[in-house]
Write a protein that binds this DNA or RNA. Structure first.
Length: 581
RNA sequence: GGGCUCGUAGUGAAGCUGGCCUAUCACGCCUCCCUGUCACGGAGGAGAUCGCCGGUUCGAAUCCGGUCGGGCCCGCCA
């Protein structure tokens, strides 16, 4: 009967068979130790020369050889116990040892601290996955899925699969296209999200739908964004007209994941709802990390009479107070200045509070009453530095928002044991392009404008609010959702504001809008980015660390060599011309 | 598409203000020794045209330009 490594500790004086990989071999000439590793851990095998065949086989072992070993579990004498491993109190005296398979010398080291380049790890992912940390990740991920499924099913959601071969959706991300063999010149697209299908399920009478849905987007990746494919916990509820119902339905799950599942503390038990504009003004971003304060403080009024040109000529002046920042060296401040410039700032003005006075290259340009008003508004004390942003409002928010984040990292304010959650609500329905001045959808064209048809008639289109909400976890957007627009007339109008006629809408979204004409119930939902949320819960800052087989940053699977060229015959069958043409 | 950054034995690092680099160290690999190790130890050995191409120079891992590849970021991600 086969035993796992970790179980053998409970089987003293029993005969066991263990199977696994050679973690290490210590050959003392007349006595050979083998650390055998399986998914449960490591156990020490002892091979004596008296067991002639086993001893001979043990002599041939190398790292990562695969073996089956049978023998008797013995308690080690006190001085031989190893407190560093869970099975260190026992060892297995081996009678029989079979080499099941051999391994070439490893291209990457899989134990120890020094990790190979990520690209090499991905090429040899099957070896990388043998590392205990990766084994733990895989197991934990399965548990994570189970927790989510259990919760949503308790809430009455039922899982329904939606098509993978779907339709191109021109308004969103770049599609992955699949040429149709049967219909020459036509294409399927892999779904960017099951958005339209899940809304159709609502029309189809499903009260609550969920799916651990694969989503496909051909956009350049980031550290927190996979290339190509990722998973969402996708949900939709019918007869819901208030997004609050969706938010309050899902909150307990996320809290449970943060606490019971990930073993962290919640920053606040009540999850704040922060309007988009407030988030932008207070944190300079719509995905604020709320584990720390350092909020943006408006100083435009305080400094409206200033004669300091940089502030005087700016549309907006704001600042953040960085506690204890006076320890920063000049060159460190310079590097933060570079960051500010990279976000569009002209420079980075600051006031240092030290020894009861203000030190700064700009202090002499400010009147004493201005300096004291700033100090008071910022709540600055000795040891702090106040950093300013003075520019167009949008630029100031962006620069200070970025700096807030960078300073928090620098001063270790991001406590990994805390999860800070927030709902960002009331997104603008439309946004204006900086350069072209053209209006476009801010978020999701399928969400309901607050106030419905009447609101869309408003003169100020930028003031129209979408019933749309995101959940933010420690500075990462982990969920996006909305109350959907289930009214065909309102939906046509939403596009009409941008100059798109009915024909346009019918052509692109005909499947869905047609359905809405046959008694669509009001509905709302959301989708959680499973991979990204898991990354945050597992304390990783690279999303590829928590995926078994991710593509690299160029969208290449370096292990399987995809994408790859295909035969001309295949292309011909799909009515696709080869690249040479 | 753009910006920044990295590329040195199988792996991870050092060297990189040009010459003493005939490129250093650790892990791994090979041979031999070793009966209580646990990342065993000991002796010896192999293994690198310093990503690639070009330039500057008496001389380039080192400086410059280009190129390829990785990473991070911007754009993009309804």
């Amino acid at each position: 009967m086969r035993s796992f490594a970790s179980d053998t500790v409970h089987k003293i004086n029993q005969t066991v068979t263990v199977k696994g990989w050679v973690n290490s071999r210590r050959d003392h000439g007349g006595l050979i130790f083998v650390d055998l590793r399986d998914h449960t851990g490591v156990v020490q095998l002892v091979v004596q020369p008296e067991q002639v065949d086993a001893f001979k086989a043990a002599g041939e072992l190398r790292d990562e050889y695969v073996l089956a070993a049978a023998g008797t579990v013995r308690e080690r004498s006190e001085e031989l116990k190893n407190p560093h491993i869970p099975t260190g109190t026992i060892e297995i005296n081996i009678d029989q040892l079979t080499i099941l398979n051999r391994s070439q010398p490893l291209p990457i080291q899989i134990h120890g601290e020094a990790l190979a380049n990520e690209d090499l790890r991905l090429k040899y992912r099957f070896l990388d996955l043998r590392r205990p940390k990766m084994q733990h990740m895989l197991k934990k991920r399965a548990e994570y899925y189970a927790v989510m499924r259990r919760y949503v099913e308790q809430q009455g959601f039922i899982e329904i699969a939606t098509p993978i071969l779907a339709n191109s959706s021109p308004e969103g991300a770049r599609d992955f296209l699949i040429p149709s063999r049967v219909h020459s010149g036509k294409f399927y697209a892999l779904p960017q999200a099951p958005q339209q299908f899940k809304q159709l399920l609502m029309v189809g009478g499903v009260p609550r739908y969920y799916q651990l849905a694969a989503c496909f987007r051909d956009e350049d990746p980031r550290a927190d964004r996979l290339y190509g494919e990722f998973y969402q916990l996708d949900l939709e509820m019918s007869f819901v007209e208030d997004g609050e119902e969706v938010r309050s339905t899902m909150e307990p799950l996320i809290k449970q994941l943060a606490t019971d599942f990930a073993g962290k503390r919640l920053m606040t038990d009540t999850i704040p709802r922060i309007p988009y504009r407030e988030a932008m003004e207070t944190y300079g971003t719509d995905k604020p990390d709320l584990r720390f304060g350092m909020e943006l403080v408006e100083l435009t009024e305080v400094l409206k009479a200033t004669e300091f040109g940089v502030f005087k000529n700016a549309e907006c002046v704001k600042a953040i107070c960085v506690k204890g920042a006076s320890t920063l060296s000049r060159s460190q401040i310079d590097s933060f200045t570079d960051i500010a410039k990279s976000e569009g700032a002209g420079g980075l003005a600051y006031l240092t509070y030290e020894g009861g006075e203000v030190k700064s290259p700009i202090a002499k340009f400010l009147k004493p009453e201005e300096l004291s008003a700033i100090k008071q508004a910022m709540g600055a004390a000795d040891g702090d530095i106040v950093f300013f942003g003075a520019d167009k409002r949008q630029v100031v928010n962006k620069v200070l928002g970025r700096l807030r984040n960078e300073f928090a990292t620098h001063f270790n304010l991001k406590d990994p044991n805390i999860i800070a959650l927030a709902w960002i609500v009331d997104f603008p329905f439309y946004e204006q392009d900086d350069k072209t001045g053209k209006l476009d959808f801010g978020h999701n064209p399928f969400s309901m404008p607050k106030g419905g048809l009447a609101a869309l008639q408003a003169e100020d289109k930028l003031g129209i609010i979408a019933d749309q909400y995101d959940m933010v976890m420690n500075g990462y957007e982990i969920c996006s959702g909305g109350v959907r627009n289930h009214n065909p007339e309102v939906l046509y109008e939403v596009f009409s504001v941008l100059g798109f006629g009915r024909n346009y809408v019918d052509a692109r979204f005909g499947g869905m809008i047609n359905a809405f004409k046959y008694g669509a119930p009001p509905h709302a939902g959301c989708a959680f980015g499973i991979d990204r949320m898991f990354m945050v819960l597992m304390d990783e800052d690279n999303i590829r660390e928590i995926v078994a087989f991710p593509k690299n940053g160029s969208g290449v699977d370096v292990m399987m060599n995809s994408p790859s060229v295909v035969d001309d015959a295949q292309l011909k069958e799909l009515h696709v011309r080869s690249v040479e043409d």
